[in-house]
Simulated assay, not measured.
Amino acid sequence: MVEAFMLIQTEVGRAEVVAKQLAALPGVSSSEYVTGPYDVVIRVEAASASELESVVVPSVQQAMGITRSLTCPIADGVHT
């Protein structure tokens, strides 16, 4: 399993709507709207890096209201 965080900027006033829209997409395991330089932070997952790059990330980026995104692959999770 490959996971990443995506940091997303949205059109003004659209963060909550975009976060809810993204939460319903396949491969999105969590979706939150936040304050700061980014408006929405999501966690995405796929069976492989290739699937993450070619399927999950593009489906997120095509959502209405997104102006910019940054994908941050998780290098190694810390499990407690």
Score class of each variant (00 low, 15 high):
Gly13Leu: 06
Ala49Lys: 08
Ile74Lys: 10
Tyr33Glu: 01
Arg14Trp: 08
Thr67Asp: 05
Ala49Glu: 04
Ser30Lys: 11
Leu52Arg: 03
Ile8Thr: 05
Ser31Gln: 03
Ile42Met: 04
Val41Thr: 11
Pro58Ile: 04
Thr35Pro: 11
Val2Asp: 01
Leu52Asp: 01
His79Met: 01
Arg43Thr: 14
Leu22Cys: 08
Ala23Asp: 06
Val2Arg: 05
His79Phe: 01
Ser30Leu: 07
Gln62Arg: 13
Val57Pro: 13
Val12Asn: 13
Met1Trp: 10
Met6Glu: 02
Ala15Met: 01
Ser31Gly: 11
Gly13Trp: 14
Glu3Phe: 08
Ala49Phe: 11
Val55Gln: 11
Val44Trp: 03
Gly65Lys: 08
Ala47Gly: 14
Met1Cys: 11
Pro26Thr: 07
Gly77Asn: 15
Gln21Leu: 03
Ser50Cys: 07
Gln62Ala: 08
Arg68Gly: 14
Leu52Lys: 05
His79Tyr: 00
Gly27Trp: 09
Met6Cys: 13
Arg43Glu: 10
Val17Tyr: 11
Gln61Thr: 11
Gln61Asn: 13
Cys72Arg: 05
Val12Gln: 10
Ile42Trp: 05
Ala63Gly: 14
Leu52Tyr: 06
Leu52Met: 07
Val12Phe: 06
Lys20Trp: 02
Gly77Gln: 14
Ala46Leu: 01
Ile74Asn: 09
Ile66Glu: 11
Ile8Glu: 00
Gln9Cys: 10
Ala15Cys: 02
Gly65Thr: 10
Ser30Arg: 13
Ser69Trp: 07
Val17Phe: 06
Pro73Met: 02
Ile8Gly: 05
Val57Asp: 06
Ala23Lys: 11
Gly65Gln: 10
Ser50Val: 08
Ala24Asp: 12
Ile8Lys: 04
Ala46Lys: 03
Ala23Leu: 05
